[in-house]
Design a protein around this nucleic acid. Structure first.
Lengths: 163, 163
DNA sequence: GGATTATAGGATACACAACTCTAGTATACC
DNA sequence: GGTATACTAGAGTTGTGTATCCTATAATCC
């Protein structure tokens, strides 16, 4: 549905939305909290920074902070920033000249993409910080949750799936 | 949204749904009508045959036919046959032991996949044969439409996009 | 200014999807 | 039976997304 990069970007943004807004979180800290390969995450954080969703601070004590309020960032913004959103179908993919409009097949496929965009455009990052019982995004069970630190326990017996 | 293979498979199935039900269409004929690379299409047709959506007939005059009525084949059946449908999120992608349920982020992403599945499960191939004005799937303008033959005119000045 | 910390950017390796090619097998027709 | 047609199967190639690594650059601390 969304690419790995998009999933990682959303994890990072959600994590940052729970950090103190004026204290930068370093890439390695975010990587540990979100279980994302650090080297790859750095590349994604750069994309998010270039898209003005994050601000980067170099040097000692540096890191990344949200550039806007979590309520002002949509999921679609994040996915767009890392080119991880399906593209609308503008023209007939077969290149048929007569098809000035999409045929029923492609009209329907495009409709799904449009639905996807509408949905993710209306969901902000602050909406994702909701908590269901003990379950909180990117965190271990809530009583021990430490949004800014390395998580307490991970299931090592089973590697998280790569998709 | 869907893979290239999935798109090609849908094109082939829609094309076949308009052919005479008892006359096989060869891979090269389907490739020409749907503008899909023939060698690759053959691989996809094999997948559809193995999934019992098509029946293959070898030898002179052979080819592929639908194994069921178009109304009995859903878009999801076609996408599943060529592994081109997004997977449901069953467990916490981060591998957090405490997360017996999905967190809000992954619950929401999974919800989108579920929505995708529901939509495509309810749309049959016969639904895709609808025609809007002069526009008909895989065909040139309807007056000259020949579902079983090579299309009349293709826009050669602009290659169809590869995505 | 020099050492340390951390991001920026580019080069590289790897995996998988997209696509091609070739040899093999079944069917039909003569 | 021989030949032509068309599917079957698997190996090979190319391109893109995923992931790593190394050097440069900026900021902080002493």
């Amino acid at each position: 549905m969304i690419s790995q990069a998009g999933e990682y970007a959303l994890r990072a943004i959600v994590h940052l939305s729970r950090c103190a807004p004026d204290v930068p979180a370093s890439a390695s800290e975010i990587a540990a909290a979100t279980r994302v390969p650090q080297a790859y995450l750095q590349k994604i954080l750069r994309l998010l920074t270039r898209a003005d969703l994050l601000v980067a601070q170099r040097g000692v004590g540096g890191g990344f902070m949200l550039a806007k309020l979590p309520s002002a960032i949509s999921m679609l913004d994040v996915l767009k920033a890392c080119n991880s959103q399906p593209e609308r179908i503008e023209r007939c993919p077969l290149g048929i000249t007569g098809h000035t409009e999409l045929c029923s097949l492609h009209k329907l496929l495009d409709e799904q993409v449009a639905q996807f965009e509408r949905t993710f455009a209306t969901i902000s990052i602050s909406d994702l910080d909701k908590q269901f019982g003990d379950i909180r995004s990117m965190c271990d069970v809530v009583p021990g949750c430490q949004a800014n630190g390395v998580p307490l326990s991970v299931d090592q017996s089973e590697r998280p799936p790569t998709d």
